[in-house]
């Protein structure tokens, strides 16, 4: 068995042990189901309400993916522009840094006033939140381009576009993907907060309703679904990372040890 498979087995086994302990504790101690539901009750809620979960989940997923795509495009584009232009580095960059230090989630009520109860306000909030880690990582990645590789391109009299496309952009890819990893988590967080505050659909909306009705099994089912989504994003981006960064050699070292 490879090292990765063994690690996964350990993680799954730990997870199952925790669930079993939870089930036993809740049953043995007679904890009220409206206080802490048992894992089996949560599973039951998930299965019984599958149509409800699916409908709301798809809304949240759609908002998150659109928000992430916008943040990715804007973050990489503006990151590249700031890296290449001294003027933008002196004007736009300080402005964005000022925005960066602002708690962006705090703007959620304002954005809902501006963009309404539909998914557009969630997309805007998600994109606005996810933009910064992607943007900053792109700028950082481009700034740390290997000086020797840049000297090589200078020897060849490469123009700026060639330096950018052949050295800076591929060199920044590890940073960019690290930014994307943070960005997608930020996006889903912001979308859910948006749905908490003002929405008529989505997982955030569902969770608020469920907890208002003291439906703890349902609330926990929703949270578990969102956790699973987060794990899914993490593994999806991990697979993408291995595909795109096969040359960096970080993945190989782990496998050799197995």
């Amino acid at each position: 068995m490879s090292n990765g498979t063994v690690s996964t087995l350990y993680a799954v086994a730990t997870f199952l042990v925790v669930l079993a302990a939870w089930q036993i504790a809740v049953t043995a101690l007679h904890v009220a189901p409206y206080f802490i539901p048992s894992p089996l009750a949560i599973l039951h809620a998930l299965i019984a309400g599958r149509a409800l979960y699916a409908a709301n989940f798809l809304v949240t997923l759609e908002s998150t993916l659109i928000a992430f795509a916008v943040a990715l495009a804007a973050g990489v584009l503006l990151g590249a522009m700031v890296s290449e232009s001294r003027l933008l580095r002196r004007t736009l960059y300080p402005l964005l840094i000022a925005f960066q230090s602002m708690p962006r989630i705090a703007l959620a009520p304002v954005i809902i006033v501006w963009f309404g109860f539909g998914i557009s306000s969630k997309v805007v909030l998600g994109a606005f939140t996810a933009f910064f880690p992607i943007f900053l990582n792109t700028v950082h990645g481009m700034a740390t381009a290997d000086p020797d590789q840049l000297a090589l391109m200078r020897i060849l009299k490469a123009n700026r576009m060639q330096v950018f496309l052949k050295v800076k952009l591929p060199g920044a890819l590890p940073f960019l993907l690290a930014g994307a990893n943070i960005g997608i988590i930020f996006a889903i967080l912001a979308v859910i907060v948006g749905e908490f505050l003002g929405a008529n659909r989505g997982m955030g909306f569902l969770i608020v309703n469920q907890s208002n009705q003291m439906d703890m099994a349902g609330t926990f089912a929703s949270v578990f679904l969102l956790s699973a989504t987060g794990i899914g994003f993490h593994y999806g981006l991990g697979a993408l990372r291995r595909r795109l960064l096969f040359w960096s050699g970080t993945g190989e070292a782990g496998r050799e040890a197995g």
Binding site: D148, Q149, A151, K166
Partner: peptide, 12 residues
Amino acid sequence: GMVFQGPVLLPW
């Protein structure tokens, strides 16, 4: 042309 102290290859 120039050959540097290290290979300076583009790893990708």
